[in-house]
C-alpha cells in the first residue's frame, strides 16, 4: 500500500458518499445518470467475485464490501425509492455501445483466459468508460448541481491517483499491470474537460455550466 493508492481509495469512497448524500438530502437523483450507476455496480460485481475466495487484507475486504453495498444502494435509491425523480429523458446514452465492445475486448486482450481473469478484465475495461453516460447527460442538460460536480471530481481523481500509484509500484515494487494502466489512463483522460470546467468554475464559486 502507498499514499497514492490510499488517497485514491479514499477519493473513491468520498465520491460514493457524496453521491449518496446528494440523492438522500435532495431526495432526488436529478442530473445523475442511472446508466453509469448500473455500470459501476456491474464493475464492482465482476471485479470482486474473489471477495470470498481470496482474502488479501481486512482493508481490502472491507472496502470491497462497502463499494458493492453502496453501488447497489445507489441503484435502489435511483430506481426504486426516488424513481420519480430519475431524469430518463436526458439519460439516453446507449449502454450496449459500451458493454458489448468491452465484453468482446476482455475476451481478446487479457492476462489469462480463465473466467475470473476475463471477468476482472471486463470490469477494468468497463470502468474506464462507465462515466460516459454521466458526462453525456451533463452535456445534454448543459449543467450539473454543485454537489454532483464534487462527486465527479472525486471520482475522476481516484483513478488519476491510481496512475501515480502504478508509477510508484513500478519503480519500488516492480509491479506492472498493462491492462489496468492503459484502462486507467483512458478513464482519467475522459474526465479532462470536466476537470477543466470544474477547476475554472466550481473553484471560483460558480455553478458548473457547459458553454452553450
Amino acid at each position: 500500500m502507498n499514499v497514492f493508492r490510499l488517497t485514491g481509495d479514499i477519493a473513491h469512497l468520498l465520491a460514493i458518499i457524496l453521491l449518496l448524500m446528494k440523492i438522500w438530502k435532495t431526495r432526488s437523483c436529478a442530473g445523475v445518470s442511472g446508466k453509469s450507476q448500473m455500470m459501476f455496480a456491474l464493475v464492482f460485481t465482476t471485479r470482486y467475485l474473489d471477495l470470498i475466495t481470496n482474502f488479501i487484507s481486512l482493508y481490502n475486504t472491507t472496502m470491497k464490501m462497502i463499494f458493492i453495498a453502496s453501488s447497489y444502494g445507489t441503484l435502489y435509491l435511483m430506481f426504486l425509492k426516488f424513481r420519480a425523480t430519475y431524469d430518463s429523458n436526458h439519460d439516453t446514452f446507449r449502454m450496449e455501445f459500451l458493454v458489448v465492445p468491452v465484453a468482446g475486448l476482455s475476451f481478446l486482450v487479457n492476462h489469462d483466459f480463465s473466467p475470473l481473469e476475463i471477468l476482472w478484465t471486463f470490469s477494468i475495461y468497463l470502468e474506464s468508460v462507465a462515466i460516459l453516460p454521466q458526462l453525456f447527460m451533463i452535456s445534454k442538460t448543459g449543467e450539473a448541481e454543485t454537489i454532483t460536480s464534487h462527486y465527479l471530481f472525486a471520482l475522476g481523481s481516484y483513478r488519476a491517483l491510481y496512475i501515480l500509484n502504478w508509477v510508484y509500484r513500478f519503480y519500488f515494487e516492480g509491479f506492472f499491470d498493462l491492462i489496468a494502466v492503459v484502462a486507467g489512463c483512458v478513464q482519467t483522460v475522459l474526465y479532462c474537460d470536466f476537470f477543466y470546467l470544474y477547476i475554472t468554475k466550481v473553484w471560483k464559486g460558480k455553478k458548473l455550466t457547459l458553454p452553450a
Binding site: 493508492r5 481509495d9 473513491h12 474473489d50 481470496n54 488479501i56 487484507s57 481490502n60 472496502m63 470491497k64 463499494f67 492476462h111 489469462d112 483466459f113 481473469e117 476482472w120 491510481y162 500509484n165 509491479f175 506492472f176 499491470d177 489496468a180
Partner: peptide, 10 residues
C-alpha cells in the same frame, strides 16, 4: 502465459 499480476488493488 505469464502469471497475471497479483490482484491486491480495489
Amino acid at each position: 502465459r505469464v502469471n497475471p499480476p497479483q490482484k491486491d488493488e480495489l
